[in-house]
């Protein structure tokens, strides 16, 4: 035969696999261990007093040490959010669902979390939410110890209360 087969191979699989060995470090380990006890820790900047969650060693803003651990609330306010309509491999959630930035009470920046137990169209900036934890005995000191956040039913927080805590 004077030429290759007419029918081409259309695809080749190319799996990229990156195995990491992650070491949390002192600061992050303390934060993760506290989740096991239903506590969320932040770190207070020694210069500005701002509280970062998860805790950081130094403030990225003032560069001063943030060496005081403080417990923040497991409830807070939705500062911004997005409605997810596209499935992600490895995340078996019913579409659409909401991922939000949440400023916990006592924290000066937001964490990312899933919002459940309400319709996506009901989620709004300023909405008050609370953490839903895994039951006692099942928490293992990981972000997944918080299953999701849900609305508390409290009145919304006015814009000025969260606009600088995104």
């Amino acid at each position: 035969m004077a030429e290759p087969p007419r029918e081409p191979i259309k695809y080749v699989d190319a799996l990229v696999r990156l195995p990491y060995h992650y070491v949390a470090g002192d600061c992050r380990a303390r934060y993760l261990r506290a989740l096991k006890d239903k506590k969320i820790l932040g770190a207070r900047c020694s210069e500005t007093g701002k509280v970062f969650v998860p805790p950081l060693v130094n403030s990225p803003e003032s560069l001063a040490p943030a060496d005081e651990f403080v417990e923040v609330a497991d409830r807070g306010v939705v500062t911004t959010f997005c409605i997810v309509n596209i499935p992600v491999i490895g995340r078996a959630l019913e579409l659409p669902y909401v991922v939000a930035s949440i400023a916990l009470d006592g924290a000066d920046i937001s964490i990312h979390a899933l919002i459940q137990e309400c319709k996506p169209e009901e989620v709004r900036m300023g909405m008050r939410v609370e953490a839903v934890w895994k039951p006692d005995g099942e928490r293992e000191g990981s972000h997944e110890d918080i299953l999701h956040f849900r609305p508390t039913g409290e009145p919304d927080m006015p814009r000025e209360g969260f606009i600088n805590r995104l």
């Binding site: 081409p8 191979i9 695809y11 799996l15 696999r17 070491v23 380990a29 491999i89």
Partner: peptide, 30 residues
């Protein structure tokens, strides 16, 4: 800050790419 034991985690990131070969490399591979 008091010493606390280190916390480890094995994390594997996988990107299961599927490359489209096109008509030339596709026939080379065939």
């Amino acid at each position: 800050m008091a010493e606390i034991p280190p916390l480890h985690q094995e994390v594997v990131l996988e990107f299961p790419y599927k490359h489209s070969t096109g008509p030339v490399i596709g026939r080379f591979l065939a």
